[in-house]
């Protein structure tokens, strides 16, 4: 499972693009105890550029051995091969078990609870990339091992979380934009309205089941989504029309805010009505 929409690169395409095949990437695991490994990131999702690094996620029994960078949740061992940077992201079994338990306990769609940012950015990235990955190791059982791991982070539940989380972002940014209008600061209102529109597009794409909606891939991801769901065409065109510039005058900025927030409201209403109907 690689790209969410459009062409899905496999090992032959990855090797042709990077000069690195599965065996070359497994070689980087030698000498490091591991339970599973999978390759993820822009190259696997068909979003890569000649500068993209290769991300290999590795489930390790514990944190023995050195690493280039140490984060709260995981360590990164940076290598270089075939003129590419290869990041081996090392996640311990304890960390992943705790993350799975936390994920299972999220109070989704509970009006009494707020799940905004209940998962860290790293945790979301881990889960997203687990689902959008090519299994790598163990060599003989990589598919089953990664499939079992994915089942601990149910994809539909992850989408539900991402939708709910983004809706909170939309609402916060919406209120900020209106607050700036009330304060008479229309330039800040317009900037925040633009953020609101971006979050609304994230929401729209998550609602269609897409896990990766990162802004740096907006053009490619939204293009593909529109090709898969033609009913997104109007939102796509309106988004680009809105992205084309903020006027210089207060009246123009207020108009920009109004158009942006109208765009946002149409998306939120569409998503909420669609989810209520299902």
């Amino acid at each position: 499972m690689g790209a969410e929409t459009g062409a899905q690169p496999g090992w032959p395409e990855i090797e042709a693009e990077t000069g690195l095949g599965a065996d070359a990437l497994r070689a980087g695991l030698e000498g490091r105890p591991h339970l599973a490994a999978w390759v993820a990131g822009s190259l696997v999702e068909g979003l890569g550029t000649p500068n993209s690094d290769v991300d290999v996620f590795v489930l390790v029994p514990g944190h023995e051995g050195g690493a280039t960078r140490v984060n709260d949740d995981y360590r990164v061992d940076v290598r270089f091969a075939a003129a590419r940077r290869v990041d081996y992201e090392l996640w311990s079994l304890d960390t992943v078990d705790a993350m799975a338990a936390k994920f299972a306990a999220l109070p989704l769609e509970d009006p009494e609870s707020n799940v905004c940012d209940a998962l860290s950015e790293h945790e979301v990235l881990f889960m997203t990339r687990l689902h959008l990955s090519l299994p790598l190791a163990p060599r003989e059982t990589a598919e089953e091992t990664v499939r079992a791991l994915r089942s601990r982070f149910d994809r539909d539940r992850l989408v539900a979380y991402l939708v709910e989380n983004r809706r909170h972002y939309v609402d916060d940014a919406f209120d900020d934009a209106v607050g700036f209008c009330l304060a008479g600061d229309f330039a800040s209102a317009a900037l925040r309205a633009r953020d609101t529109a971006e979050f609304a597009v994230d929401l729209l794409l998550h609602d269609r089941g897409l896990l990766n909606v990162r802004h740096k891939y907006r053009r490619a991801i939204f293009d593909r989504a529109r090709a898969s769901w033609p009913d997104l065409g109007p939102a796509y065109e309106r988004y680009w029309a809105l992205s084309s510039g903020i006027p210089a005058t207060a009246a123009g900025q207020q108009d920009f805010v109004a158009r942006s927030l109208d765009f946002v409201e149409r998306i939120v209403t569409h998503v909420q009505d669609r989810r209520a109907a299902s």
Binding site: G233, E237, W240, A241, R259, D262, R266
Partner: peptide
């Protein structure tokens, strides 16, 4: 309606 709104905004942009 949303498509028409997008058209109007595109033309005004």
């Amino acid at each position: 309606p949303a498509d028409e709104q997008a058209f109007r905004e595109r033309m005004l942009a």
